[in-house]
Simulated scan of single mutants.
Amino acid sequence: MDKLKIGVITNTFGIKGELKIKSFTDFTEERFAKGSKVELLIQDKYKEMTIQSAKEHKGMMIIQFKGYENINDVECFKGVELYINKSDLHPLKNGEYYFFELVGLTVVNETGDPLGTVLRVEEGLAHNLLRIEKLDGSTGLVPYNPAFILRVDMAKKIIQIKVIEGLL
């Protein structure tokens, strides 16, 4: 079963078993809602947990798992990653993609010549950025913006971009 990482536990918060989560999802409220299930990857095994409570605090999520009400019960979770099943993802609108779907796609120019491969999607201030590994092994950034992204073809596994001077 394919899993998708949605966050990592960075530390404890207070003494009542709450944990600080660095979220990797655009659907924070949904993924960390009370009653939601997540899986913790502990020593190469997944442990399903139910979220008892969640709130946002200074850009981090603060959550508490059902049955864990003491700091001593959760200290062992520091650094542990949180996952969901990819089958639990809801469909996006036409033309929208999850970040993980773009990784590995070939980037081509307007005429279809390959330029490189998407390594990852990075969050920028104005918009997201595609980190591209170019054919020479170096990397570059392409704004994920309609001014540069001409077409995403998931069937052909390509992203066609408009290349301007200095972009790559």
Results as ranks from 00 to 15, higher is better:
126 A>M: 13
99 F>R: 12
126 A>R: 14
153 D>S: 08
134 K>A: 04
162 K>G: 08
145 N>A: 01
127 H>L: 05
134 K>N: 08
157 K>T: 01
131 R>C: 04
153 D>E: 05
151 R>M: 09
149 I>K: 04
149 I>H: 02
113 D>E: 14
119 L>K: 12
116 G>V: 06
105 L>T: 06
118 V>W: 06
160 Q>G: 09
163 V>D: 07
112 G>N: 03
107 V>R: 02
118 V>Y: 03
98 Y>R: 13
105 L>E: 06
159 I>H: 14
98 Y>G: 09
125 L>F: 14
153 D>G: 00
103 V>F: 03
161 I>V: 15
111 T>R: 13
126 A>Q: 14
125 L>S: 14
110 E>A: 06
121 V>Y: 08
132 I>S: 07
143 P>E: 10
150 L>N: 13
113 D>V: 13
137 G>F: 11
141 L>E: 14
150 L>P: 11
167 L>M: 13
107 V>I: 14
113 D>A: 15
164 I>W: 00
128 N>I: 00
156 K>L: 13
129 L>R: 11
145 N>H: 11
150 L>V: 12
100 F>Y: 13
154 M>K: 15
103 V>Q: 06
168 L>W: 05
129 L>P: 00
143 P>M: 03
115 L>Q: 07
105 L>P: 04
124 G>I: 01
143 P>F: 02
132 I>W: 12
132 I>K: 06
136 D>E: 11
144 Y>A: 15
140 G>N: 13
139 T>G: 00
154 M>N: 07
165 E>F: 08
145 N>I: 00
124 G>R: 13
152 V>Y: 01
147 A>L: 10
143 P>D: 11
130 L>A: 13
165 E>M: 09
160 Q>P: 11
142 V>H: 02
103 V>W: 03
110 E>V: 01
138 S>M: 07
120 R>Y: 07
117 T>W: 06
165 E>Y: 07
140 G>C: 15
121 V>W: 06
100 F>Q: 00
160 Q>E: 15
129 L>I: 03
145 N>F: 06
148 F>W: 11
105 L>Y: 09
106 T>Q: 13
110 E>F: 02
152 V>F: 04
154 M>C: 08
122 E>S: 12
166 G>I: 10
155 A>N: 08
140 G>P: 02
110 E>N: 04
152 V>R: 01
129 L>K: 12
123 E>L: 08
115 L>D: 01
154 M>T: 15
152 V>C: 01
119 L>P: 03
154 M>L: 15
152 V>A: 03
104 G>K: 10
113 D>G: 09
159 I>P: 12
113 D>M: 13
123 E>F: 05
105 L>Q: 09
144 Y>Q: 07
119 L>C: 00
113 D>F: 13
151 R>E: 15
115 L>H: 01
99 F>N: 11
161 I>T: 04
166 G>H: 08
129 L>D: 07
117 T>K: 15
124 G>D: 10
156 K>C: 05
100 F>W: 01
119 L>E: 09
125 L>H: 14
140 G>K: 11
155 A>H: 04
107 V>Y: 06
108 V>L: 01
168 L>T: 02
164 I>S: 10
167 L>V: 11
121 V>S: 08
132 I>A: 07
126 A>L: 12
123 E>Y: 09
158 I>L: 11
149 I>G: 02
101 E>G: 08
112 G>C: 02
120 R>C: 12
152 V>S: 01
139 T>P: 02
145 N>C: 02
130 L>W: 03
158 I>H: 10
166 G>V: 10
